[in-house]
């Protein structure tokens, strides 16, 4: 079984080396770094160390960067693709736990959740409120309850890789992709993982932007849950 780790990286020169070292300690996984038009030395560090990297000439944002990884996974015939953030907040020691349901056929799409065992970094309380609101919104829209819906630590099988190449939404990829996958009839599962506080650098979502972000995400989630009914009519073949 071919397994690919997709690492979106935007200005992660300080975090990448330790992340790749950690990933190499877990055998059986290939990885690809998607350098999303970084302005720092991310590209130079990857070349110096001979890391497997795709370099995007302009900054497309996390959604499109990750989608590049799924495209690469599809073109190279990978069976499983796992997303890990380039900032080092996702602990690669949980890789095998995460993909277990995929290998055993229990799920098509596994979300690594920091809230299930409540261990590791639990995020700030303000952000937790936001996540729980969005989680409830997704429950209302789809009838499925997932807790860590903004988690970027996730694993999918081949059919979902194909779905994400065609339908991955670029604006709010994490919660969006959950709705897309549910609406397409895929089986989703949440698995406990531990997360860490970002090693270096700042998170891409700042506190002050949170309320605006919430409004945008909610609107776009509601819209996408409606719009997908049309996609379904085209038949299930993606």
């Amino acid at each position: 079984m071919k397994k690919l780790i997709i690492i979106p990286a935007y200005n992660e020169e300080k975090n990448l080396v330790s992340l790749i070292n950690e990933i190499r300690e877990v055998p059986g996984f290939d990885y690809i770094i998607i350098n999303d038009g970084s302005k720092d030395n991310t590209s130079a560090i990857c070349k110096e160390n001979g890391y497997n990297m795709i370099e995007l000439p302009i900054n497309l944002g996390i959604g499109a960067a990750v989608q590049t990884g799924y495209l690469y996974a599809m073109e190279n015939d990978y069976d499983i693709a796992i997303q890990i953030d380039g900032d080092g907040q996702h602990d690669p020691r949980f890789l095998n736990n995460l993909i277990k349901p995929l290998i055993e056929g229990d799920a098509d799409f596994v979300i690594g959740s920091r809230f299930l065992h409540k261990k590791g970094f639990q995020s700030t309380s303000a952000r937790k409120i936001g996540i729980s609101l969005l989680s409830n919104l997704i429950f209302i829209l789809t009838g499925n309850k997932f807790y860590d819906i903004t988690s970027g630590y996730r694993a999918v099988n081949k059919p979902v890789i194909k779905l994400f190449v065609n339908h991955y939404l670029k604006d709010f990829p994490e919660p969006h992709s959950i709705i897309v996958a549910i609406k397409k009839g895929f089986k989703l599962l949440e698995m406990p993982v531990h997360m860490r506080q970002r090693m270096n650098g700042n998170s891409s979502i700042h506190f002050l932007k949170a309320i605006y972000y919430m409004m945008k995400v909610s609107t776009s989630l509601i819209l996408s849950s409606m719009e997908l009914k049309d996609i379904d009519e085209e038949g299930k073949a993606v």
Binding site: M53, A64, T68
Partner: peptide
């Protein structure tokens, strides 16, 4: 976006 993604993969 699509062109940039394909370009990145081709470059690799």
């Amino acid at each position: 976006y699509t062109l940039t993604q394909k370009l990145g993969i081709l470059q690799k």
